[in-house]
Design a protein around this nucleic acid. Structure first.
Lengths: 143, 143
DNA sequence: GTAAATATGACAAATTTTGTCATATTTACT
DNA sequence: AGTAAATATGACAAAATTTGTCATATTTAC
């Protein structure tokens, strides 16, 4: 019951893109070296973020990556779902065939509640907010 | 980000024990066959529940397993932690060395909130309540 | 002493996660 | 047209985790 490295990398990458400059184009090499993400691995993750519309990629010379929509409209939850697929704390939340009882397993509604809440929290802040808070924290430490 | 089969089996086993008879002794074979859990696998899980004090096991002829404390004092969260270890939605919640920034990674507090909430919900009902609700649902279906 | 139960540790299979690499494609520029 | 610079994609491989099996040990009642 844990975020994968894939998800972790995706979030780091997205926050990096926001932090550098909302509208700038950056390259995958740049993102991976700055954030210590294995480049070839990141190259598998980036297209998934693009498919979800979170970033836009541009091939060719001078190409690279930029945000696909406003950083105020992107949440950690979206990023996680984009690279890990729809969240399911318990298998039976995806497909009832995994449920042990006839209509629901005993803890089904509990998992439902838990998941709904988790999604709520993970979408309660935009990456714009998160990047801003992070920058403020760093400034505090330097003083 | 999902409950493992180990956790799923542990919860099923615990609820079975409660459902049958709060004070009865039952055997691992009985639990596994009734709940369709691979017996040898369940035999690895049971001692973990015993170590956590959720059940008490008795070796020897006539031995078996019974609850370690009142079913009203046992929550799904405890069961999960007993067999899967302390919950950590993100690695950096266990050890700061996994945190990407100096003091916190950007999403650290968000993960903290999310985890606190998840634990709250998964410990909001006792397995006594869950077993009771399950029984009621089954009765409804039979009428 | 024997039968019936759990405990434990070594092993193995299956699955998922993490990573690599070669090749293809697109684009700007000269 | 050709070249350099960028992403895209699919096949493969390594590593880690999960899931499962089995043989052996231990405990207990009778």
């Amino acid at each position: 019951m844990q975020l994968t490295l894939t998800g972790e990398y995706a979030i780091r990458a997205m926050i990096y893109i926001v932090s550098v400059d909302e509208n700038a184009i950056c390259t995958i090499s740049e993102i991976s070296s700055f954030n210590k993400i294995p480049e070839n691995f990141l190259r598998k993750i980036i297209p998934q973020l693009a498919n979800a519309g979170l970033i836009k990629s541009q091939r060719g010379s001078g190409g690279g990556i930029k945000l696909g929509k406003s950083s105020y409209q992107i949440t950690p939850l979206e990023i996680i779902i984009a690279v890990e697929g729809e969240m399911a704390l318990n298998k039976c939340l995806i497909d009832k065939k995994f449920c042990s009882n006839e209509r629901w397993c005993t803890v089904h509604t509990l998992w439902c509640d838990a998941q709904k809440n988790l999604k709520l929290i993970l979408s309660s802040k935009s990456i714009a907010q998160l990047a801003k808070e992070s920058k403020e924290r760093k400034n505090m430490l330097n003083h």
